[in-house]
Amino acid sequence: MKTILAVAYNTFVEAKRDRVLYSLLLFAFLMILSSLIFASISAEQYNKIVKDLGLTAISLIGIVISVFLGTGLVHKEIDKKTVYNIFSKPVRRYEFVVGKYLGLSFTLLVNTVAMGFILFLIVLYTELRHGDFIRFYYGGNYFMEFFKAIYFEYLEFLIVIGIALVFSSFTTPIMSLLFTFFLFVIGRFSGDILIFAEGVKNRVLRGLLEVIYRVVPHLEKFDVRREAVYGGSINPELILYTTAYAVIYASVLVFLSIIIFEKREFR
């Protein structure tokens, strides 16, 4: 466990000292801040614009960070031969993979909390200034739903990091990037697979589509951004099941990465 934490911490330090991360975060903050300007010209839809734009910025930047740092996660260590240092120490391969995953997950947690905090301040500001309008148009300020939406976004990052990790453990960053992006898009539209399957008459093909549906990540289920604006039931049960699904799916991905990584040779 200590080994895993040491690897995780070092991964966090690496990300922390990566300039790319800061430029992305800066971009996110600019996007969040710019929502104020858009909101001011939005015909009284302050809260909606700020939340929509802000939550999208957090999700977008979070996913970009997950994908970019995730796809280099394992490959970079092999490429730069730092694995020789790691594995000449009493480190098991799965400890390394798990540590890497946790390290980047923690990085994303810190980033998401930071971005979420800034966004919350801005939401709070619009609420103070235009509270009456907001309640008039949307029937409430839905702070809890706002935080739940950010939490769900973070769950999605956990899965995206896992996907990137799987590909990172056997192919080059460019290829990983491509594959991860592919799977990400499929995941965002996974529901369509099922709808499509329901329209297929051929039983075999239909079964196949259903299996594919069950296997691909249901990333669209982590989008509750609308509820953060209009309110809606994100009840504890939904949070529980969605979290459980995210954790199980992320475990599958980490486990798969471990299996692949166990077989790798460091030449």
């Binding site: 200590k2 080994t3 040491a6 690897v7 790691i86 120490k89």
Partner: peptide, 8 residues
Amino acid sequence: RYMGQLHG
């Protein structure tokens, strides 16, 4: 420090 931690 990191390498030492890996050794426990």
